[in-house]
Design a protein around this nucleic acid. Structure first.
Length: 114
DNA sequence: CAAATGACGAATC
DNA sequence: AGATTCGCCATTT
């Protein structure tokens, strides 16, 4: 425990229950820095403890995931979240695909209720 | 040792 | 209402 904001981010992400997802901004707010969603992303990218920090449960405010996901691809993340019970919204004609294949997490139902 | 970079989100003009 | 700018920390080279 280095006692840094970054370390606190890992703790918050690790606390996300299976079947739920949290947004970068939400984690940043829980960590005490509501305007630091950037560093939350960097913190997870650093991912000093792979397998311990469920980065796949952290998604954008839009419900899409980060471009360049490190678990094996956005498809892998969708499978992981879907396996945990997270509901996904399929790409719909008219909606812009963001980051992903167009698949986004239904934050309305599965956003982590801290 | 110092500088640059890095998965975003909200506030403001 | 939309577009743009700012914010802020740690890690790495």
């Amino acid at each position: 425990m280095t006692g840094t904001f970054n370390q606190r981010v890992y703790d918050v992400v690790r606390a996300i229950p299976a079947g739920k997802v949290a947004t970068y901004g939400q984690i940043a707010a829980l960590a005490g820095r509501p305007r630091n969603a950037r560093f939350v992303g960097f913190a997870l990218h650093a991912n000093p403890e792979p397998g311990v920090i469920p980065c796949h449960r952290v998604v954008f405010r839009d419900g899409s995931l980060a471009p360049g996901f490190a678990f094996g691809g956005p498809d892998a993340q969708r499978a992981l979240l879907e396996a945990e019970g997270v509901r996904f919204i399929p790409p719909r004609p008219g909606a812009d695909n963001a980051g992903d294949n167009g698949w986004r997490v239904d934050l309305s139902q599965c956003q982590w209720d801290a």
